[in-house]
Design a binder for these strands. Structure first.
Lengths: 134, 134
DNA sequence: ATAGGGTCTGTAGCGACTACAGGGTCAAGG
DNA sequence: CCTTGACCCTGTAGTCGCTACAGACCCTAT
């Protein structure tokens, strides 16, 4: 029932430094300490860290995670706030996907234009700059 | 034929600070100066900056840009180096696309599981953490 | 003469960590 | 009992690619 920071790290696949960092920025509460000043975590902290990790894996920013945590702490509160954050994040992910797909297409075209040979004739270089890069 | 940093900025849609930053990290050469110590660019620098911008827009890292520039400077050199960098980058973009698509799918599932109501019953919160986040 | 733009240097900040340096602590084996 | 190695502590600085100042100088137009 009592975990060291190393236990927390293994259980959530989060680096020790990252856990300390989360504590420093107030995302995790300051835990109890053992007599030898080691951090001493309980089940609640492990749950909270799991939550943070999972949200981060889904691409939420630390600010979004903070908001999710604060809403989720108030169990009687309306679900709409959570939903709004998640949906806004989904839109952002969709935008990124579209951007990346467009970029990929262009990059592929640049690569395909090259059929070997010396740099002076290279189509990739040509495609990258309008004027001659010295 | 002589450009101020503002001209360069407008011509390449790059912020002035960014241009100075590129100079600081050695991506752009230190330009000539006017009598009043203003940076004084020529056509070559404009070309080089355009090249950098374009490569950055295609998602190359500054280190990759540096490599592309150094290879492209040697006009007689083999095209293969350029090709390798570009192809490696394409792979990276594909990995990112796959990751982002997987993330999107999961995020969508989490969002769809919620049908409103109070936080205590919220499926989004549930989906995010195995234990109760305090 | 002054107002407004531009430019200069240098430094600090962003997000989300990551990597030390330089120490203290603890359990197991010789 | 002592040592070895794994763990933990704090604090600071580095990463990437910029961005945003602060406090100064310069140039043109009115």
């Amino acid at each position: 029932m009592a975990f060291t920071i190393g236990d927390m790290s293994k259980a959530t696949a989060t680096k020790i430094e990252t856990i300390r960092y989360y504590e420093k920025i107030g995302l995790l509460p300051k835990p109890a300490r053992t007599t030898s000043n080691y951090r001493d975590y309980g089940q609640a902290e492990l749950g909270r860290l799991s939550f943070i990790r999972r949200a981060r894996d889904l691409g939420f920013s630390l600010d979004q995670v903070r908001a999710l945590l604060s809403i989720s702490g108030d169990r009687s509160c309306d679900c709409a706030g959570i939903d709004a954050i998640a949906k806004e994040h989904l839109l952002e992910v969709d935008r990124k996907l579209a951007d990346l797909a467009a970029l990929r297409k262009e990059l592929k075209a640049v690569i395909d234009s090259c059929d070997g040979g010396i740099v002076a004739d290279c189509r990739i270089i040509e495609a990258l700059g309008p004027a001659s890069p010295s």
